[in-house]
């Protein structure tokens, strides 16, 4: 970490064009036009599912549009399989500099990715819509508070553990600590219901190596699943975590 601080002092200040601070659930929905490629690996004895997602963002003044396409690779009783997940489209409006509201919809475009990482609407075939709002505010020079709330309805093929049509809510809070001008560390706690992973604790390290490019990596701990709150029939126990990597470019 000291090396990074030193690096930040030596190199010219990097200010990524259009980039915003975000967590895992608290997404960069109000960022500038750009593209993000993200990878999630569920590791551990209950792991094996990976998610690769490409996200396109378009922004004009206070309006933002995002399109995200996830692909899942997962285990089955006969080996590994893979499929496109649910296409996710979001439209957002920045009401005031700290608050953004929007509507997100998702619908399946794959043959059936019968798995999930930590969000029920990413891979498992289904459709739904939710209203979202996000908040971001600098608390001090290096601290930024983040929050997200969402409420909606989702429907999926009713194969256990998925119940079919369901109401969904999300609440997430996070804190980002800047490390110089190029890096930072974001922690986030999120609650969701109904969801396959109801309580998640995430930590992400971010670096902006050049202007307009952000690389993040971190770990998500599904503590709700660990303590048996997941709707799955799997018993309680810490048998999985999720590694996360993403690269975002802002134009």
């Amino acid at each position: 970490m000291n090396r990074l601080v030193l690096l930040a002092c030596v190199l010219p200040t990097v200010a990524s064009a259009g980039s915003v601070i975000s967590g895992h659930q608290i997404a960069d929905i109000d960022a500038g036009t750009g593209v993000t490629v993200a990878q999630e690996f569920v590791v551990g004895s209950d792991g094996g599912t990976t998610l690769t997602a490409a996200q396109l963002r378009w922004a004009r003044e206070d309006l933002h549009l995002g399109v995200r396409i996830p692909y899942g690779a997962y285990r089955t009783p006969q080996g590994r399989d893979g499929s496109l997940g649910n296409l996710q489209i979001g439209g957002y409006y920045t009401v005031i500099p700290t608050v953004t509201v929007g509507l997100e919809v998702h619908a399946n475009i794959g043959e059936g990715a019968w798995s999930w990482t930590n969000a029920s609407s990413d891979l498992w075939p289904g459709a739904g819509a939710r209203a979202v709002t996000q908040y971001r505010s600098e608390a001090s020079g290096s601290l930024t508070w983040l929050a997200r709330g969402a409420l909606g309805v989702a429907s999926a093929r009713a194969v256990d553990p998925f119940p079919g049509t369901r109401l969904q809510f999300e609440a997430a809070g996070g804190l980002d600590t800047a490390i110089g001008d190029m890096a930072g560390f974001t922690t986030e706690l999120s609650l969701r219901g109904w969801d396959t992973s109801p309580i998640d604790l995430a930590g992400l390290f971010r670096v902006d190596p050049i202007d307009g490019l952000r690389v993040r990596g971190g770990l998500l701990l599904p503590v709700g699943t660990w303590v048996g709150l997941s709707p799955s029939q799997r018993p309680a126990g810490a048998r999985e975590a999720t590694l996360m990597l993403d690269v975002a470019a802002y134009f």
């Binding site: 792991g47 094996g48 599912t49 009783p77 019968w114």
Partner: peptide, 12 residues
């Protein structure tokens, strides 16, 4: 009974 896979359909 089908083999149960974590993060997959729970068919019993």
């Amino acid at each position: 009974d089908p083999l149960e896979i974590a993060h997959g359909p729970e068919v019993h």
